[in-house]
Design a protein around this nucleic acid. Structure first.
Lengths: 246, 246
DNA sequence: CAATTTTCATTTGTCAGACAATTAAATGTA
DNA sequence: TACATTTAATTGTCTGACAAATGAAAATTG
């Protein structure tokens, strides 16, 4: 693990990269303890604050964890799917909001990927996943629900659908696509009528999964995708009209 | 933006969270300048090194960028898809290697998600994407190619396929799934025979896209998935046999 | 006056040294 | 042996300082 002392700026970034590479290449194994901050400072010929900045960078990516005390130090972290979800969702959400991704594009991505889960989910869905989906669909039919709570429940429903595929890699990859849609969905006002329609489609999806009927699920997802797009388009059109009238 | 001074540990994490929340909620806009480190230290009642650790955390997630000099400082970064790819790939790769994800599970995820792109890619593929795929397929048929180079070309081929769907959100989400497979693929020894088969399938995929034939692409991807699994299974079986013989 | 150079203030990057808080192991004690 | 105490190692934080970069303002020059 070496850094280039000639390029003086961003020493902490270089150190972080060196350690990250060591982790990625397998030079540092899971749960292995890194040298103490003082030792690292010696090795890299930098000061302890600089080492600490590097370690914080790695900590932000969940690549290491630190522990105080006599036997403490920085340890290579076993990156868990659950830990990675949060970052994935944060990043996806910001990507959508900062790059002016249209509702249509985000929606297309979400449903295209979700439909990829349909066959697996239909084959493997557990009673648990089904129960979650039914419960969320029921919650969505409650009259007093705010739009925001409705959206949150919608996300929970779709995450259960994704998780039903029983493949942690898929669940991880799709967490971002599903959750990042929530801010976009929040711009929609869900009337009683549209909620009813959505709940109906959700129920049909749950039915399809219960009957191991992948095709039914796929078709219903396609319907849901186009209906969601319709709703969003209505909002967009209404806003455009309001702006023109002004 | 407030932090809790009572819980003394991990002040820098709290500060990072406060700023991250401000970015996510829209309180801080893209390209907006944060207060200087000294000002932040005052505001949060901590020292400058602590503030710096927090900023490095945010920098590691590409949420901010910093600039030296008179008008420098930390700025809210416009998170670009290209910037996010790297992190996505790093995280996905580590997730697979650290959680003992089997080849079969990773492969299933990759092809399930790729097949979701098939209809979109068939409809929208540009000449550029096709050319990339043809070129990679041709490279894969070169005799002298190392297994590693073959895998790298395979990844490039599949990324072009994903990008052909013309949806940046999908490209981003799938970057991880596609690239993280490479270390797993690298354990396979690709014989001339198997390479020939794979190149053939790749060519069929390119043909399908050229003809806007989504179904052909889908079917070929399914074949490729099962063939890849076969190859991996053979490696796994051979290793098990070698271990038993020992 | 305009163009160029110089100076300067601001800000991040880095360093050195210090102390507090935490924690497990070593040590002492009943 | 069981329990309390001490100790050493380590991270977390602070203070103060200087270096390096950089744009803006001031001074200089044609």
């Amino acid at each position: 693990m070496k850094i280039d002392p000639k390029s003086p700026a961003d020493l902490s970034a270089q150190i972080a990269k060196a350690i990250r590479d060591a982790i990625m290449s397998g030079d540092l194994l899971v749960d292995e303890r890194l040298p103490s901050e003082a030792e690292l400072a010696d090795q890299f010929n930098v000061s302890r604050p600089t080492v600490r900045e590097a370690l914080k960078r790695l900590g932000a990516q969940s690549l290491i964890r630190t522990q105080r005390g006599a036997t403490g130090g920085a340890f290579v972290n076993r990156l868990r799917f659950e830990d990675a979800y949060g970052q994935q969702i944060t990043t996806s959400t910001l990507l959508l909001s900062m790059n002016d991704v249209s509702f249509a594009v985000a929606c297309e991505a979400r449903y295209a990927l979700e439909r990829a889960c349909a066959p697996l989910a239909a084959a493997r869905r557990s009673a648990d996943h089904l129960a979650t989906m039914r419960a969320e669909a029921h919650r969505q039919s409650q009259p007093g629900l705010t739009d925001e709570a409705f959206c949150a429940s919608d996300v929970a429903f779709h995450r259960a659908l994704v998780d039903a595929a029983g493949n942690p890699v898929i669940s991880y990859q799709l967490a971002g696509a599903v959750e990042a849609m929530q801010p976009l969905m929040n711009m929609i006002t869900f009337t009683a009528r549209s909620r009813e329609r959505i709940v109906q489609l959700h129920s049909r999806i749950a039915d399809g999964l219960e009957n191991h009927d992948a095709e039914a699920v796929d078709i219903t997802l396609a319907e849901l995708a186009s209906y969601t797009n319709e709703l969003a388009q209505a909002v967009i059109d209404a806003r455009a009209a309001a702006r023109d009238a002004q």
